[in-house]
Amino acid sequence: MTQLLWDISPPIHGASPVFPGDTRYSQQWCATITPDCPVNVSAITMSPHIGAHADAPLHYDPEGAAIGAVDLEPFLGPCRVIHAIARGPLLRWQDLAHAITPDLPPRVLVRTYERAPAGWDEDLAAYAPETIERLADLGVQLIGIDTASIDPASSKALESHQAIRRRGLRVLENLVLDTVPEGDYELIALPLKLTQADASPVRAVLRALP
């Protein structure tokens, strides 16, 4: 049977990796089913950057919009998955060029791992800022990656985040693309309407194009 849907979101739980110092996932039960209570109700605490997530401009721009205020269009529509496995630490144009064609969709997701690691990866692959600039020149509205950040983990200048700020791009991080063949899909990865947050978890999926 032909696969029609790929879930590209990692599971979220207490052991999910986070940027060192960020808030891990935790959950407590506020109510449980008993003869006197008909429901289970929980409270969760976590960083909005855990799992597959969309960064808001507020994350890298003190005057930027919160995630609940951004346009949803970039997170929904045709996209291209490009394989650039083990090409780090920075993804250069030559790492993507084999999959760049005149009909490039406005959303590009890059797979860098053969298999996504279970824990935090200090040596994660990231986008080179000039690669983002060239994608933006081609009309790309959203970039994604299967690592925790579009910038190196040790970066303080966040040059790639500043590139998407300048060019008005949106970003998805921490995707799971291990089983996704290179090619074109429909992306569905809508962020929550969090009115004050610097990011939002997403349930990112790819759907086969007709």
Score class of each variant (00 low, 15 high):
residue 199 A to K: 06
residue 135 L to S: 06
residue 183 G to Q: 00
residue 67 I to W: 05
residue 149 S to T: 07
residue 63 E to R: 08
residue 90 L to A: 11
residue 55 D to I: 10
residue 132 I to G: 06
residue 135 L to E: 05
residue 41 V to L: 13
residue 45 T to E: 02
residue 126 A to N: 11
residue 180 V to L: 03
residue 93 W to A: 07
residue 95 D to S: 11
residue 156 K to I: 13
residue 95 D to G: 03
residue 74 P to F: 07
residue 98 H to C: 13
residue 24 R to F: 14
residue 15 A to G: 08
residue 61 D to N: 11
residue 10 P to V: 08
residue 182 E to G: 11
residue 120 W to F: 12
residue 166 R to K: 10
residue 189 A to M: 08
residue 83 H to F: 04
residue 174 N to H: 08
residue 19 F to V: 14
residue 51 G to I: 15
residue 137 D to Y: 06
residue 147 T to L: 08
residue 114 E to G: 10
residue 92 R to D: 15
residue 21 G to Q: 07
residue 30 C to L: 12
residue 37 C to D: 01
residue 42 S to Y: 08
residue 100 I to E: 13
residue 128 A to R: 10
residue 133 E to A: 08
residue 201 P to M: 11
residue 94 Q to D: 14
residue 192 L to D: 04
residue 32 T to F: 02
residue 176 V to L: 06
residue 150 I to P: 07
residue 76 L to K: 09
residue 6 W to G: 12
residue 2 T to F: 09
residue 167 R to V: 05
residue 139 G to W: 08
residue 161 H to K: 07
residue 25 Y to S: 09
residue 13 H to N: 15
residue 139 G to M: 01
residue 80 R to C: 13
residue 54 A to S: 13
residue 131 T to P: 03
residue 98 H to D: 15
residue 162 Q to L: 08
residue 149 S to P: 07
residue 199 A to W: 04
residue 163 A to F: 00
residue 86 A to T: 02
residue 130 E to F: 08
residue 78 P to V: 12
residue 36 D to N: 01
residue 168 G to E: 01
residue 192 L to Y: 09
residue 78 P to C: 11
residue 8 I to M: 10
residue 141 Q to G: 03
residue 11 P to G: 13
residue 134 R to N: 07
residue 71 D to H: 05
residue 162 Q to H: 12
residue 187 L to D: 02
residue 150 I to E: 01
residue 174 N to F: 08
residue 184 D to W: 06
residue 157 A to L: 15
residue 92 R to N: 10
residue 5 L to S: 13
residue 114 E to L: 09
residue 92 R to V: 10
residue 167 R to I: 01
residue 22 D to Y: 06
residue 187 L to M: 05
residue 130 E to H: 03
residue 71 D to V: 05
residue 132 I to R: 00
residue 61 D to K: 00
residue 208 A to D: 15
residue 50 I to C: 07
residue 4 L to P: 13
residue 43 A to V: 09
residue 116 A to T: 15
residue 97 A to H: 13
residue 172 L to Q: 00
residue 75 F to I: 13
residue 187 L to E: 00
residue 12 I to A: 10
residue 200 S to Q: 03
residue 28 Q to D: 09
residue 174 N to A: 04
residue 208 A to K: 04
residue 42 S to P: 00
residue 154 S to P: 03
residue 157 A to D: 10
residue 129 P to G: 04
residue 167 R to C: 10
residue 15 A to H: 12
residue 120 W to I: 08
residue 200 S to H: 02
residue 140 V to H: 04
residue 137 D to V: 07
residue 80 R to P: 01
residue 183 G to E: 07
residue 189 A to F: 01
residue 25 Y to D: 05
residue 149 S to H: 10
residue 94 Q to I: 14
residue 13 H to P: 04
residue 122 E to P: 02
residue 178 D to C: 04
residue 22 D to A: 14
residue 145 I to N: 09
residue 121 D to P: 08
residue 7 D to Y: 09
residue 37 C to E: 00
residue 200 S to G: 03
residue 177 L to F: 02
residue 165 R to D: 06
residue 1 M to Q: 15
residue 85 I to C: 04
residue 142 L to Q: 02
residue 40 N to C: 06
residue 18 V to W: 05
residue 107 R to A: 09
residue 194 L to F: 03
residue 174 N to P: 00
residue 5 L to D: 14
residue 90 L to E: 03
residue 79 C to N: 11
residue 155 S to P: 10
residue 8 I to S: 12
